[in-house]
Computed example of a mutant assay.
Amino acid sequence: MRKLFEFIRSIYVVVLFVALEVAAISYYAHSTHYTQARLLARSNQVAGGVHGFFAGIRRYFSLGHENRLLLGRVAQLEERLAQYEEAETNARLDSYMQDIGESKYRFVTASVVANTVNRAQNLITLNRGRQDGVVEEMAVLSPDGAMAGYVVDCTERYAVAMSVLNTSFRASGKLADAEYYGSIYWDGLDQNVVILGELSKYADPKPGQEVVTTGFSQYFPADVLIGWVESASLNETRTAYTVRVRLAAEMSRLNEVVLVGNRDFYEIRNLQQSEQIEQHTRND
């Protein structure tokens, strides 16, 4: 009992102070309506702060879930944006090609679905097929009209083209503003350079000179830009040049293409393969 009295005596000052403070605050709080309103506002502010603190903690732990929802939404928007951009690009290219007017050649635009540049046999897959007017042997040009390849197979909705960066690719080319021509092919070494081989020793190619198609090829119209002379060297017999040509088409950045078809191609080919022509060939 004595210890209890000693404990009460040691803290009675604090207890008395707290009791007086409570009594004073109670008297102050009930003294006027103004003080009641102020204390109520202050208590609401404190309570609001406490609730806000715990709400912030709850929001923090829910950030992961919200972030996943936002990422999903971003992915959906990116997909829609890609669809809109593809549609806009195709519409723009189609409009541009329609302005060219009727000619010996017909034009179709397409987007590149797949494209390789680091193999020996590189191919380009396009999002247009037979239902869009695409057929085999159509030329494939970059959007600015440079040689890129030619179509080798089609389905109803897609086409595959042989890239100019394919060791099986062949076309005819010449120096611009000159009559000397040779064979265009890729040696499989540099994805930015093709070879113009068997060019006459009288051609005298100069670095920077334009190289274009001849029109003799069954795939490409005449004067399609291939690239520019990088260097040239005579063969061992000094009868022809082998010319390194830097490509005008940026094959590693090919996203859209223009397909060019010769309206007379099949008529000419059928004529060349007719029985009469074969008879004359056999006689030779």
Rank of each mutant, 00 (worst) to 15 (best):
S183V: 09
F169D: 02
K174F: 05
L141N: 07
E275V: 10
D223R: 14
M138E: 07
G208Y: 09
L259S: 04
T213P: 10
G64S: 02
N118R: 04
T239I: 07
V212R: 11
Q209L: 11
G72R: 07
D144H: 14
V257W: 05
L69T: 01
T155W: 00
S274W: 14
N122R: 04
A110S: 12
R282G: 03
A120Q: 09
V13N: 09
A120P: 00
D177R: 07
E156R: 10
S26K: 12
N192I: 00
A114T: 10
V112Q: 01
G197E: 03
R253A: 11
N235E: 03
E236Y: 06
I11W: 11
E250P: 02
N262T: 01
G215V: 15
T116V: 06
K174D: 01
E6N: 12
R9N: 14
P205Q: 04
G215F: 13
A82R: 15
N235W: 04
T116M: 08
Y158G: 05
P143A: 10
T35S: 14
V15T: 15
Y28G: 07
A222R: 12
L126K: 02
R68I: 03
M147C: 11
G173C: 02
S200I: 08
Q209S: 11
G56N: 03
F265W: 13
Q45D: 06
L16T: 13
T242Q: 11
W186C: 02
A82M: 15
Q279G: 08
D153G: 08
D204E: 11
L271G: 11
H33R: 15
E250Q: 07
V193D: 01
Q76P: 04
Q276I: 12
E6V: 13
L16C: 13
F220A: 12
T116Y: 01
V160Q: 06
T167V: 12
S231C: 08
V224H: 12
R2M: 14
A120W: 01
N262F: 03
N262V: 07
N118A: 06
F53N: 02
D264N: 14
N270H: 09
Y27M: 13
L20F: 13
E78I: 10
M162C: 01
V258F: 04
K3W: 15
R130W: 06
A114Y: 03
N192G: 00
A75E: 03
M97C: 10
V245D: 01
L141C: 10
A171W: 10
I25R: 11
V212E: 08
R170L: 13
N118C: 02
L93F: 14
V193E: 03
E210I: 00
L259W: 04
L247Y: 00
V113L: 04
I195V: 12
Y105I: 00
Y105V: 07
Y185I: 01
D187M: 05
V74C: 00
A171G: 09
N127K: 05
A148C: 08
T155Q: 06
R73W: 02
E86H: 15
A159F: 10
Y185C: 05
S274N: 15
A29Y: 13
Q191R: 05
C154M: 09
F220C: 11
